[in-house]
């Protein structure tokens, strides 16, 4: 059998295990098994990717995995139970960072004439020369945008719960307008990246704007609402991973990413209901914070 066929079959099996794992995590009796199924699926996807992609720089791959496992393992095992929500927020930020960096490597490689892998079609042959593949460019810009918001938003969420950043709902007059302007500016920059991918300046500005948006969206939210925000950012990191899947033409990234993206939204809604909050209120209103201030005043 061809290697790509085997790879995609293993990816399919991993996808099935991810689905069963997520389903299991939602019920008390099956939660532990669900988590293990997810871990097994991840391991399968990693191993088959290493085998199928004829990885050249093995030493770098090993170094990265060992270092990441050490840091992740120590953090997960040493942290106090009370500090777990912010740790999840921090881990989520790292996931978003990974998506951003992969998109960045992909576009740098494409601009400098390299290809990131067999399945990646950054540049395609067109009449009159080589051109950027529209799917590749749109997905790269989208991944950079969502990943940037996820990374910086998660860092702020972590900082608020850890007490590094003010837990209070930080608000100022016209903050909604500032957020809207930065959002529109990032959309414009995203379109410019799509129109002219070879000019990396647009891409760097897009990264800067999405990072700023991540900060602006999270700073105004009070500490009590942070678990909801982390659940939402978790959904975003899934969406970023799915976008990266479209950059790399990789099915397991698309499936696992969109599963987390969609289920994360549902979980966010469930958590909002449990805390008697509406999502719009948490994100834009900050009514809880305002009410407290009025009561104090």
């Amino acid at each position: 059998m061809e290697l790509t066929v085997i790879t995609n079959l293993v990816y399919l099996l991993a996808a099935v295990l991810f689905i069963l794992g997520l389903k299991g995590l939602g019920h008390p009796r099956t939660a532990v098994r669900g988590n293990l199924l997810g871990a097994v699926a991840m391991l399968m996807a990693i191993v088959v990717t290493l085998v199928a992609n004829e990885i050249v720089k093995v030493e770098w791959v090993i170094a990265g995995i060992v270092l990441g496992s050490l840091i992740g393992g120590v953090l997960a095992l040493k942290i106090k139970m009370t500090a777990m929500p912010q740790l999840v927020g921090l881990f989520n930020g790292f996931g978003g960072l990974a998506s951003v960096l992969v998109a960045t490597v992909a576009i740098i490689d494409a601009v400098t004439g390299f290809s990131m892998g067999k399945a990646v079609t950054g540049l395609v042959q067109r009449l009159g020369g080589v051109a950027f593949d529209p799917q590749f460019v749109v997905a790269t810009a989208f991944s950079a945008f969502v990943g940037g918001v996820t990374f910086w938003g998660s860092l702020i969420a972590f900082g608020k719960l850890q007490g590094i950043v003010s837990e209070k709902s930080v608000r100022y007059p016209g903050d909604q307008i500032v957020k809207a302007l930065v959002f529109v500016a990032s959309l414009v920059m995203g379109v410019l990246v799509v129109i002219e991918p070879s000019n990396l300046t647009y891409y760097w500005i897009l990264l800067g704007l999405s990072s700023l948006l991540g900060l602006l969206l999270t700073v105004p939210i009070g500490g009590a609402d942070m678990p909801i925000v982390i659940a939402l950012l978790n959904s975003y990191s899934g969406i970023a991973a799915a976008a990266t899947g479209f950059v790399l033409n990789n099915t397991i990234l698309i499936i696992a990413g969109s599963l987390v993206g969609a289920s994360g939204i549902i979980l966010t809604q469930i958590m909002c209901k449990a805390m008697n909050r509406s999502l719009a209120n948490v994100l834009f209103g900050g009514l809880g914070g305002a009410q407290v201030q009025e009561d104090l005043g």
Binding site: F18, G21, L22, L25, A31, G34, N35, G38, A39, A41, M42, A45, I46, T49, L50, N53, E54, I55, V56, K57, V58, W60, V61, G64, V88, F91, N92, F94, G95, A98, S99, L101, V102, V105, A106, D109, F114, S115, M116, G117, V120, N234, S237, G238, A240, A241, T244, G245, V247, L248, N250, I252, L253, A256, G257, L259, V260, S263, G264, L267
Partner: peptide
Amino acid sequence: GSNAISGIAIIGALIATGA
């Protein structure tokens, strides 16, 4: 748990590092 699954971005990172 679903946050750990969204770490699937590791597949992209492996491809990026290995090329």
